Lab assay of single mutants.
Amino acid sequence: MPSETPQAEVGPTGCPHRSGPHSAKGSLEKGSPEDKEAKEPLWIRPDAPSRCTWQLGRPASESPHHHTAPAKSPKILPDILKKIGDTPMVRINKIGKKFGLKCELLAKCEFFNAGGSVKDRISLRMIEDAERDGTLKPGDTIIEPTSGNTGIGLALAAAVRGYRCIIVMPEKMSSEKVDVLRALGAEIVRTPTNARFDSPESHVGVAWRLKNEIPNSHILDQYRNASNPLAHYDTTADEILQQCDGKLDMLVASVGTGGTITGIARKLKEKCPGCRIIGVDPEGSILAEPEELNQTEQTTYEVEGIGYDFIPTVLDRTVVDKWFKSNDEEAFTFARMLIAQEGLLCGGSAGSTVAVAVKAAQELQEGQRCVVILPDSVRNYMTKFLSDRWMLQKGFLKEEDLTEKKPWWWHLRVQELGLSAPLTVLPTITCGHTIEILREKGFDQAPVVDEAGVILGMVTLGNMLSSLLAGKVQPSDQVGKVIYKQFKQIRLTDTLGRLSHILEMDHFALVV
């Protein structure tokens, strides 16, 4: 994948999101292997301009796509893939009243899908469409860049269908997702969380590099694949309309690839034109409109599966009536509230959605109805927002919020430890010299600072030695090549209790 991002070429006709291997024109390309080798690009942008032909009021008969309808489940399912879809609609009884809503608040519980998330729908649909058009064949390999849930859905379907599955996901995604993927037989590649989507090191860039190296491999490409919004247009939206008897006044959905909100909203605009569509985008993402909503100094966020630093091709923002931004604290607070007060075992993005819903639905009156999409299960986040310690460490809970008995030293300040200034190293000294210094002084790690004293990161003896043994660096290389740029900081005025929580999850903390 090139470091400079080429513009994806656009073909003359058809839909841009065809499933299957992508040609340089962004659509299915038939021909000899030699032709494909000559024409197939190194990668295709996940934010390529959409060429979708959908228009409100256009006859369904003019759609270029294969459409399906929700099917009634048999008493005995032939395999677990038949437990994807037909998820329950559940009334939220307490939270709406707590925040003064007059309307009825309903939750579409997508964590009841077989793999635990709304992404099971698009995973199965992308595979079925690729099999139907002859792209996927027995023994082929599926590769997908994902925040985890699409990966789980694909790995689940691949396990049943017999495909090899490789999932490329950023490091910030939970260990629970990784464990589930491994249990399903998927191979996992992790990428830096802070890598831009168009960087060769991003999950998108690495996935395309693997595709170019592995024979008979395919990126189904949830960011561009029409099967993504079509899955929701054909099934999720129809289920909502049936469950609500066609009567709903507002739908609120958090947005990642945009397939969920695009597919549902398009069908609702056709069948229930008075329904307002509300999009939820986390602070630090750029999906919301108008652009002024996205202006923030924050560039990272903890909530998973929603928000991006690019506009995915499948996201149709014209069908969203209003956007709201959400933050991590309210997302996790509301997710825990949904679990504790409503018994809905949902993930953090569901918290984002409901946090926005109780604001947006203030305009609705008694007798009206708001539906929220709860995308995934708490299963993926047992060591994250479900953990009091994690919430404390991230600053989303305060010590006084917890009532468990603490040891005698818990409320003492870090400054009472009488710490001395640490050994520091410059980023320009060599790895070999740094190892000598650390061994001589008896230290395992040291902060790396520039000549102005600005902290650049941390270097550890173990990481340097393993990097040297693996051949990633040489003793003569500058130590700046092996620094940890993500590390926890703590102030002298913070409590030892807070430091204790940090050290339970990290090997060190830097006192500043």
Score class of each variant (00 low, 15 high):
Leu124Pro: 15
Val10Ser: 11
Lys39Asp: 12
Arg266Thr: 10
Ser227Arg: 07
Tyr163Lys: 04
Pro74Lys: 15
Ala60Gly: 01
Met250Trp: 01
Arg182Cys: 10
Tyr163Gly: 01
Gly148Met: 15
Ser61Gly: 01
Ala155Ser: 10
Glu201Met: 05
Ala155Glu: 01
Gly11Tyr: 13
Pro2Glu: 14
Lys75Asp: 01
Leu248Tyr: 01
Thr150Gly: 01
Pro2Trp: 10
Gly100Gln: 15
Leu184Glu: 04
Glu144Pro: 01
His67Tyr: 01
Asn212Glu: 11
Asp47Gly: 06
Pro138Leu: 11
Leu156Ser: 05
Pro2Arg: 11
Ile261Asp: 10
Met250Thr: 05
Ile166Cys: 06
Asp129Gln: 13
Val189Ser: 07
His17Glu: 09
Thr236Pro: 06
Arg190Glu: 01
Lys177Thr: 01
Tyr233Thr: 01
Ala159Val: 13
Gly20Thr: 07
Phe197Cys: 05
Ile80Cys: 15
Leu268Gly: 01
Arg196Tyr: 09
Lys267Val: 09
Lys267Arg: 07
Lys25Ala: 01
Glu270Cys: 06
Met126Phe: 05
Lys247Phe: 01
Pro21Arg: 06
Ala71Ser: 14
Thr87Tyr: 01
Lys82Asn: 13
Ala157Met: 09
Gly11Leu: 08
Ile214Tyr: 07
Lys108Trp: 01
Ile143Arg: 03
Ile122Gln: 01
Val255Pro: 06
Lys36Ile: 15
Ile240Ser: 07
Ala157Cys: 09
Pro21Leu: 10
Pro70Ser: 13
Glu176Phe: 01
Glu37Thr: 01
Gly31Tyr: 06
Met89Gln: 01
Glu40Gly: 13
Asp47Cys: 01
Ser19Leu: 06
Thr235Ser: 12
Ser3Trp: 01
Glu128Leu: 09
Gly85Leu: 01
Leu268Tyr: 01
Gly100Asp: 12
His67Ser: 11
Val206Asp: 01
Lys83Met: 07
Leu210Gly: 08
Lys94Asp: 01
Leu28Gln: 12
Ala186Trp: 01
Gly256Ala: 01
Ala48Thr: 14
Arg91Thr: 15
Tyr233Phe: 10
Ser19Asn: 06
Gly263Trp: 04
Ser174Arg: 01
Ser174Tyr: 01
His203Arg: 03
Val10Ile: 10
Thr191Ala: 01
Glu144Gly: 06
Gly31Lys: 15
Ser27Met: 13
Ser19Arg: 04
Thr235Arg: 01
Asp179Ser: 08
Lys247Trp: 08
Leu251Ala: 09
Ile143Ser: 04
Asn216Phe: 06
Asp221Pro: 04
Asn225Thr: 10
Ala265Tyr: 07
Gln242Phe: 07
His65Trp: 05
Thr135Ile: 04
Leu220Pro: 01
Ala237Phe: 05
Gly116Arg: 10
Glu144Arg: 05
Ile166Asn: 07
Arg266Ala: 13
Gly139Tyr: 07
Ile142Arg: 05
Trp43Lys: 01
Cys272Val: 14
Leu124Val: 09
Ala8Arg: 11
Ser227Cys: 10
Ser61Trp: 08
Asp238Ser: 11
Asp47Ser: 08
Arg18Thr: 15
Gly258Tyr: 08
Lys39Asn: 12
His203Ser: 10
Ser3Thr: 07
Thr87Ala: 11
Trp54Met: 08
Phe197Gly: 06
Lys137Asn: 14
Glu213Lys: 10
Ser199Ala: 05
Lys267Pro: 01
Met173His: 06
Asn93Cys: 14
Pro273Thr: 04
Thr5Gly: 08
Ala155Phe: 14
Leu105Cys: 06
Val10Met: 11
Glu62Thr: 01
Asn93Asp: 11
Gly11Cys: 15
Ile166Ser: 07
Glu270Thr: 06
Glu201Val: 04
Ser174Gly: 05
Glu40Arg: 05
Lys25Arg: 08
Ser227Asn: 13
His22Val: 14
Lys30Arg: 13
Arg224Gly: 10
His67Asn: 01
Asp221Ala: 01
Glu270Ile: 01
Ala107Cys: 13
Glu187Val: 07
Lys98Phe: 07
Lys177Phe: 03
Lys247Pro: 15
Leu42Lys: 04
Gln243Ala: 08
Leu181Lys: 04
Gly57Ser: 14
Thr135Met: 10
Ala265Ser: 10
Ile44Thr: 09
Val90Asn: 05
Glu37Asn: 06
Gln243Tyr: 12
Asn225Met: 06
Gly263Ala: 01
Leu105Met: 01
Thr53Asn: 14
Lys247Arg: 10
Glu4Cys: 12
Ala157Val: 08
Ala237Glu: 15
Leu136Asn: 11
Gly31Ala: 09
Lys36Asp: 01
Pro46Trp: 05
Ser19Lys: 15
Gly259Tyr: 03
Arg196Val: 04
Lys75Trp: 14
Gly85Arg: 11
Met173Gly: 04
Ile95Val: 09
Glu144Val: 07
Asp198Lys: 11
Lys177Ile: 01
Pro59Ala: 04
Glu110Val: 03
Phe111Val: 05
Leu77Trp: 05
Thr141Ser: 11
Glu37His: 08
Gln242Tyr: 10
Lys137Ser: 01
Leu248Glu: 01
Gln55Ser: 10
Lys172His: 06
Val168Trp: 01
Arg51Ser: 15
Pro59Ile: 14
Gln55Leu: 09
Tyr163Ser: 01
Gln243Ser: 06
Pro2Leu: 13
Lys82Glu: 10
Glu239Leu: 01
Ser61Ile: 06
Thr150Leu: 06
Ile240Tyr: 06
Leu230Arg: 04
Glu213Gly: 12
Met250Phe: 12
Asp129Thr: 08
